[in-house]
Computed example of a mutant assay.
Amino acid sequence: MYDDILFPTDGSDPSKEAFEYAVDLAATYGARLHVLYVADTNRDSVTTIGGEVVDALETEGERVVADVEERAREHGVEAVTEVLQGDPSTTILDYADDRGIDCIVMATRGRSGLKGLLLGSVTDRVVRQSSMPVLVVSNDE
């Protein structure tokens, strides 16, 4: 049923909880887990350190996906990792379409009411625009 599962992560605590669902689903179906971190180009994250241009979000993303890849291996799940720049929801959906992803597993912080409406949500946009199933793991803060 599932050969390729996408787990977009930002390294947050809600994402860490969603990982458990993603890795269990991948293990159950013998699926490959795609771990994606999107360095949000809507935010300024580039700086110069010692004369070298460094993108702090890309650096953080590399650390996050390496950690998730190691945790997936501990569960016996093959993981493919990638750090991309872009608008998070658009990049997630493009990645899923380009790679034939069967299911997306992602976290939401469970915001509701005016706060959720004003802040928007990457997860909400992915759910509304995805052509494949999306498993949303809620974390009420």
Rank of each mutant, 00 (worst) to 15 (best):
Y2F: 07
D3S: 15
D4F: 03
D4P: 01
I5F: 05
I5M: 06
L6S: 04
L6R: 08
F7C: 08
T9S: 12
D13A: 14
D13S: 13
S15M: 05
K16A: 12
F19I: 03
F19H: 00
E20R: 11
Y21F: 14
D24W: 05
L25T: 13
A26F: 01
A27K: 14
A27F: 13
T28Y: 14
Y29Q: 12
G30W: 11
G30T: 05
A31T: 01
R32S: 14
L33S: 00
H34R: 10
V35D: 09
V35N: 06
L36G: 09
L36N: 09
A39I: 06
D40S: 05
T41Q: 03
T41I: 00
T41D: 07
T41M: 02
R43G: 02
S45E: 07
S45K: 07
V46L: 09
V46A: 10
T47W: 03
T47Y: 12
T47I: 13
G51M: 03
G51K: 05
E52H: 11
E52M: 10
L57K: 02
T59A: 12
E60A: 13
G61I: 06
G61N: 01
E62S: 11
R63K: 15
V65D: 00
D67R: 11
V68Q: 06
E70G: 12
H75D: 15
H75I: 04
G76R: 04
V77T: 07
E78W: 06
T81Q: 06
E82A: 11
E82Q: 11
V83D: 04
L84Q: 11
D87C: 03
D87R: 08
P88A: 04
T91Q: 00
I92F: 09
I92E: 08
L93Y: 09
L93S: 10
D94M: 12
Y95C: 07
G100L: 06
C103K: 13
I104T: 07
I104F: 04
V105A: 13
V105L: 08
M106V: 01
A107D: 06
R109V: 12
G110F: 02
S112N: 13
S112T: 14
G113D: 10
G113I: 02
L117E: 12
L119V: 08
T123P: 05
T123I: 03
R125L: 07
V126P: 07
Q129H: 13
S130R: 07
S131D: 15
S131E: 15
V134W: 00
V134Q: 08
V136W: 00
N139I: 14
D140C: 15
D140M: 14
E141Y: 15
